[in-house]
Design a protein around this nucleic acid. Structure first.
Lengths: 242, 242
DNA sequence: GCTTTGGTATGACCGTGGTCATAGAGGCTG
DNA sequence: CAGCCTCTATGACCACGGTCATACCAAAGC
């Protein structure tokens, strides 16, 4: 235990990839619009791909940020977990979505974790390379601010939901958000939904039983299917950003 | 009512000020470290001061962002308020603290409000001027990211607190945070504390009664005094960012 | 094959804290 | 001064949802 493994933060296994494939990834990634092809390729040249199996950590809390991460394939959940083991998921990132926009700038450890939910590949760019690149392409700064704006608003909006909305409403909001992003068939377990809605598995199961009995959803092991989205929708309920 | 006052977003009253005084303000403002004196003065030249009485709004939700705001004197609370009137304060800004770091970049309306809690003066910089200035001084990028990092972490940390901590702990955390920032004499009402802790006035009053009976705090109308901070402190309880 | 693990399902219990009601005290205004 | 509003204070009530327990099923592992 006293032997600290300084190299332990190398996560995942390297994957071979072509510059072309990486450029393709950044081309339509979130937050990189407005760059010329030459810049995209410069960025792609800085990146390497790594693969992660289901359940593997892409990065862990309280570790200094070394890389900027962008999902290439698969699905990654980014969450915070408290001292007492409570988890709260606040991002489900798929191809083209960045995992840590802030980290690279400060380099400081924060308390986010990222875990692969499936077989996944993630592009890594050393943080200084990334920050240097952004400095040379100020348009990225605006893009990044736009994304952070949504992230902060979403966090604040959830905060309000936690005080004034009950579990059922929060869960519905989560389901609607997932419907927008992933379609009507949501391949998540109840415990994953619970971590998104900020409640327990039991309450999530109970609430889903109610929605099921109303014919609004169907569910089986590891999957929820929204049958009548209209019954969930409510004009004043804007989706979260997950 | 149908007469929409297009100029109604001009808030507060203009205040005369010298370039020197404004430069002084930006000199030691949060997020502007690392600028040369010439740049500070360029920035100060873009700013104008406005005054607000207690209770006046500096900006309101759902309005496009026109200015970057920096508190010069007084105290401003920034909060979100939900459709049903629930409020959650998430920033108490005093001299040198920015009110809206993200807004100027996107310009989009968000759902933050800012309200003067005392007689207050706020520096305004038109958002395009501000964004242009930041683009010319990339060091500000890093400063801004560092602040946003704290803001996002604080929001997420609160989110976890809402699920797993009870009101007493949340309130204690708020009190400790305020102790760090404003000293042992906290001039806030119970309802203001409630909005910081994410609970109701009644529960806040009850909880404070308990802390008072334990001799940890004293309180009178509009003021709380922390007598024995050590009894509240707990190594694993890091302060919020308010 | 059997065992283990993780997901689903549901009942019972009860504590935290929100809601409503009432009341007094301090401060501001006309 | 009266009148009003805000802040403080506290009691009574009870529902939402967390916790614990049990059970069943499917998939994975030895």
């Amino acid at each position: 235990m006293p032997v600290s493994r300084l190299t332990a933060d190398k996560k995942g296994e390297p994957v071979e990839s072509t510059l072309e494939a990486r450029a393709e990834l950044f081309q339509d990634a979130m937050g990189f619009g407005g760059l010329g092809r030459d810049q995209i390729e410069k960025l792609a040249a800085l990146a390497t791909l790594r693969r992660f199996s289901k359940g593997e950590m892409v990065f862990e809390q309280d570790q200094p940020c070394q890389y900027f991460h962008l999902v290439a394939t698969g699905l990654v959940k980014v969450y915070i977990c408290s001292s007492s083991g409570y988890r709260m998921t606040y991002l489900l990132a798929r191809r083209g979505e960045p995992l840590n926009l802030i980290g690279p700038f400060t380099g400081d450890p924060r308390f986010l974790c990222a875990e692969a939910m499936q077989e996944t590949q993630v592009a890594h760019i050393p943080r200084h390379d990334f920050v240097g690149f952004v400095a040379q392409n100020p348009i990225l700064f605006n893009n990044i601010m736009a994304i952070l704006s949504k992230a902060v608003d979403s966090a604040n909006s959830r905060l309000i939901d936690m005080v004034e909305k009950r579990v059922e409403e929060r869960l519905i909001r989560v389901l609607l958000t997932l419907l927008d992003k992933f379609g009507a068939e949501i391949r998540l377990t109840s415990s994953e939904l619970a971590e998104l809605a900020g409640t327990t598995v039991e309450t999530t199961l109970r609430t889903m039983a109610r929605l099921r009995s109303l014919g609004i959803i169907e569910s089986e092991r590891g999957q929820v299917k929204i049958i009548r989205p209209a019954s969930l929708k409510n004009p004043e309920r804007l989706p979260l950003w997950v």
